[in-house]
Design a protein around this nucleic acid. Sequence first.
DNA 1: GCCTCTTAATGAATGGCATTCATCAGGAAT
DNA 2: ATTCCTGATGAATGCCATTCATTAAGAGGC
Lengths: 232, 232
Amino acid sequence: MSEVIPQRRVISRLPRERRVADIMEAAHDVFCERGYADASISDIAERAHVVEGTIYRYFENKRELLVRVVGHWYEEMLADYDTQLSGIKGTRNRLRFLIWRHLRAIKTDPALCRLVFSELRAGPDYRETRVFDLNRDYTRRTLDILRDAIAAGEFRDDAPLTLVRDMIYGGIEHHTWAFLRGEGDFPLDETADAITDFVYRALVIVPADDMTLARIEQAAAKLERLIGKAEA
Amino acid sequence: MSEVIPQRRVISRLPRERRVADIMEAAHDVFCERGYADASISDIAERAHVVEGTIYRYFENKRELLVRVVGHWYEEMLADYDTQLSGIKGTRNRLRFLIWRHLRAIKTDPALCRLVFSELRAGPDYRETRVFDLNRDYTRRTLDILRDAIAAGEFRDDAPLTLVRDMIYGGIEHHTWAFLRGEGDFPLDETADAITDFVYRALVIVPADDMTLARIEQAAAKLERLIGKAEA
DNA sequence: GCCTCTTAATGAATGGCATTCATCAGGAAT
DNA sequence: ATTCCTGATGAATGCCATTCATTAAGAGGC
C-alpha cells in the first residue's frame, strides 16, 4: 500500500572544473576496473553523482573521456621527470632511469597502461590526441640521451635513433604483457638492469683494452722504424 | 499499389566445414575493413549469406570468431616457416630471417596484425586462446637460435633470453605502429637489417682480436726481415 | 527579498548491436 | 512417401552510447 516516494534529489550546480574533475575521477576508476569496452557511461555517471546526459555536456563522447583521463595521468607522471633526470649523470645511468621509470609506471598503473597500449594507440585519431604529444615529449628524452652519447663518441652513430627508442619501449611493453594481463609479476630492478645492459652493449663503441693497444702501438712503432730505415 | 513480394529465399543446408569457412571468410573481411569493435555480426552474416543466428550455431560469440579467424591466418603463415628457416645458415642470417618475416607479415596484413596487437593480446583469456599457443610456437624459433648461438660461444650467456625475444618483437611492433595506423610506410629490408644489427651487437662476444693483432705483428716482422735482407 | 534569464542538469527517447530462442523446413534415413 | 533430426531463420530481448526537450539552480539586476 505504501507508495514509493521518489527521493527529491537535490540538484546542485557545481563549478565547471569540479564537475569535470568528478566525472574524470569516476571515469578513471571505472575504466581501470572494467576496461574501456566494458565500462558504461551510466556506471561512470552514477559514480560521479550525475546523470548520463551531464557527461555529454563536458565530453564529446566516451573516447574523449578516455583521452582526457589518460592525458591527466601522463601529465602527473611527467611532472617530476626532468627534475629527477637532471640529477643523474652518465649515459648508462640516465638510460637506466628512463627504463626504470617506464617499468615502474607499468607496475604501478597496469590498468591505465593497458588502456594506452590497446585502446588509445590503435585508434586512427591517435595522432590528433593530446596523449600523442605527451608521449612524444616523454620519449624525446630518450633520443636526447642517445644523441648526447653519440656526440661524446660513446655510442656508434650508425644506429637509427628512433629504432633504438622503439626497441626500448616496445621491448618493455612486450616483456610486461603477461603482467598487464594479470598473470604474475616481474622484477623491477632486474628487468631495468637487463634492458639497460642490452641497449648499452648494442650501441657502445668498445675501446680496445690496454694490452691490445700496447701491442698495436709496438707494431706501428716497428713499422715506422722500418720505414725510416727504408728511406735512409 | 504493387506489393513488395518477399523474395522466397532458397534455404540451403551446406556441409558444416563449408558454412564455417564462409562465415570465417566474411568475418575476416569485415574485421579487417572495420576493426573488431566496429564490425557487426549482421554485416558478417550478410556477407556470408546467412542470418545472424546461424553464426551463433558455429561460434560461441563475436570474440571466438575473431580468435578463429586469426588462428587460421597464423597457421597459414607458419606453414612454410620451418622449411625456409632450415635453408638458412649462420646466427645472423637466421635471426634476420625471423625479423624480416615478422616485418613482412605486418606489411602484408596490417589489419590482422592490429587485431592481434590490440584486441586479442589484451584479453584476459588470451592464454587460453589457440593464438597464444601458435604465437608461442612462432617465437620459440627465436629462442632456439639464441640458445644455439650461446652454446657455440658466439653470444654471451648472461642476457635473459625471453627479454631478448621481447625486445625483438616488441621493437618491431612499436616501430611499425605508425604504419599500422595507416600513417606512412617503412622500408622492409633496411628495417630488418637495422634490428638484426642492433640485436647481434648487443649479444655477440667480441673476439679478443688475437688473430688480427697477430697478422699486424707478423706483417711488421716480415717487413723487418725483408728490409734486413735488402740491406745485406 | 523578488524577478529574470542563462544554462547546468535531468531523464526519457532513439537507434544500434550482440546474443537468444521459438519456429520452420531441408534432406537423410526409413 | 513419411518421419525426424537439426541447420537455418528472423523476431525478440536487453544493454548501451548518444541525443534532446524540459526543468529548475542560482547569478545578476532591481
